[in-house]
Design a binder for these strands. Structure first.
Lengths: 328, 328
DNA sequence: AGTTTTTGTGAAATCAATTTCACTTTGTGA
DNA sequence: TCACAAAGTGAAATTGATTTCACAAAAACT
């Protein structure tokens, strides 16, 4: 069913039909004729054909590093809430942490497939930079902050600083650190920076023995905790860059008979569900993931509508969630 | 940049360009001319324009009840893996458990927006049925089994039966049950059926006192467990329809000083991450969620390619994961 | 050498819409 | 009653591709 055929059925011209669905510059009697015909036939205009003329797809590309991660899912939920309300659909691609795919998909979106792109970034290479600069549709980056681009990010450094300071204020003197790869600017570098800053202020230096890098997994947290906590002298507090790592660490503590929080304070970052039910409830930092998705979507929408917009960076605040794992 | 302009730059006709990107019925010299021009200009054909002619969008609609759920995320990961490989993109919509939205989106997809639809279903109303029957593009339903439609589902009944039998075989005599709404055929009805079947075989009848319905949340599991376990006589085993409910129940047990598994055996269903780190590691049933996504995507692809396909239902097997919460 | 077949080509039609433009009709004020 | 503005209309051009069709050139047979 195309517009001509439909117009014939409704007893009006093609133009009238088009006007009905668009600007609506149309006499009342024709409007009713068309309305009736729509009800009868269920006709609705082809989006592809509209796209050819208007260059609007009502589609937004969303690039995710990993779907089955609580934080990504929450961000995406925020994005989809706002965009669906505005009549946009999400074209979602999953890069499975494959950096080349990220660029590949950006390139795919560069053609006229979508009206804008939201990138949940982790790593950020030279290649990203150059592909992003060549984009001629608006892009918003979530979770990382890069000059010259639209970004919505969290205060990773501040959260790590606050958590570390919390433990130091409670009397911790020998801290340990399990982080993630520094390629991840936010969760790797920024959180480490916050941790380091708090130590520096307290005049404490971190021993190399008490530093480890884990993956974003419970199992990996368990292993790295085992490695660090079995070395002498044993630390009295442990900062984990993510809740899943902290959950793994707590698992090891229970197994090894280490008393949390009395012998060892532990904290994570992200306030994922898992922290509520660890053997000892976990102190962590709550990031407003869903809000970041909502804000990113809004930012993109406004960049799509008025095309001139200057790049802006929005940093969302966090909240410390204090639970037993650091109570003393 | 359109095909005519590009053809002029390359020094060939529009038709030649089209053939280059499609069937390739083209002389070698022209092929090279075009190849060079593509490298120079970065031209690629407009997907919308292609869609108008060929009716192929290379898009698949995916309807999710909730993004931030581990099982949904895993299924989607499987789907996206297979479809991306075949050059398809996912149009993802999140209904936030709103049944009307589910139908609304099905209707949206009914027009020529996508080549096929995958529906992660929970509830299934009369309205669903009638909208689905009016669909003229292939649909695959994941997680539920409905006659007359393509389905990929899990053996919810079998898993619940096996878990219940496991506890009964270990000597449990007074079972309790925390389920989810029966509107959810798979997680609500089927799992309850499996549980009931095992009881019936053992000649045990369930007291009304020992039955409750929770939401898919830790907090809700906690509350319902509190309600059930505080009534006399206390049950000696507890079947929870999901891991998150079980996690909440275990939380209450720790708080109330109930010894799991000696005083009370507990199990969940779904093998989510959370079960690994509960105060007592959780016995559960592992469903192959990612595999179900993969199979659903394959089923859809084959339905798209040869349009005649008869509806088929695929039921995936499960595995019992036995941990401490039922060890005796 | 003459005919048939194969191979390759571009013009033109087609797909399903929007939008401009030139026009009719209607309404208002003098 | 006439002039002029406003409102409404449909034909036709346009958007960016694919695909059919007719036709030319080259190759392979008589």
């Amino acid at each position: 069913m195309n517009i001509s055929e439909f117009a014939k059925i409704a007893g009006v011209s093609k133009s009238a039909v088009s006007r009905y669905f668009n600007n609506g510059y149309l006499a009342e009697d024709k409007r009713q004729l068309i309305e009736k015909a729509v009800e009868k036939t269920g006709y609705s205009p082809s989006i592809s054909a509209q796209n050819i003329r208007t260059k609007v797809t009502k589609l937004v590309g969303v690039i995710l590093p990993k779907l089955s991660s609580e934080s990504c899912a929450r961000v995406t939920e925020g994005i989809s809430q706002v965009l669906n309300e505005e009549g946009y659909e999400l074209l979602l691609v999953n890069t499975a942490n494959d950096c080349r795919k990220e660029v590949e998909y950006l390139d795919l979106f560069r053609q006229n497939r979508v009206d804008g792109v939201i990138l949940l970034a982790t790593v950020f290479t030279q290649l990203h930079q150059s592909v992003l600069n060549k984009m001629h549709i608006p892009v918003v980056i979530v979770g990382q902050s890069y000059k010259g681009f639209n970004c919505v990010c969290h205060d990773d450094c501040g959260a790590a600083y606050a958590l570390t300071k919390l433990m130091l204020d409670k009397g911790a003197q020998a801290p340990a650190y399990i982080g993630v790869t520094l390629d991840d600017k936010a969760a790797g570098e920024e959180r480490r920076n916050g941790f380091t800053k708090a130590l520096a202020e307290a005049g404490i230096t971190l021993s190399e023995k008490h530093k480890a890098t884990a993956e974003f997994k419970i199992q990996s947290g368990y292993e790295q905790a085992k490695y660090i906590l079995s070395r002498k002298p044993r630390p009295d507090c442990l900062f984990c860059a993510t809740d899943s790592i902290a959950a793994g660490a707590l698992l090891y503590c229970r197994e090894a008979g280490i008393d949390v929080p009395n012998d060892l304070m532990v904290c994570g970052v992200g306030d994922s569900q898992i922290g509520q039910i660890t053997s000892v409830p976990l102190t962590t930092a709550h990031f407003h993931y869903k809000t970041s998705g909502i804000e990113a979507a809004r930012m993109l929408l406004s960049a799509i509508s008025r095309h001139d917009s200057v790049p802006r960076i929005m940093k969302l605040d966090f909240e410390i969630v204090e639970r037993e794992s650091t109570s003393r």
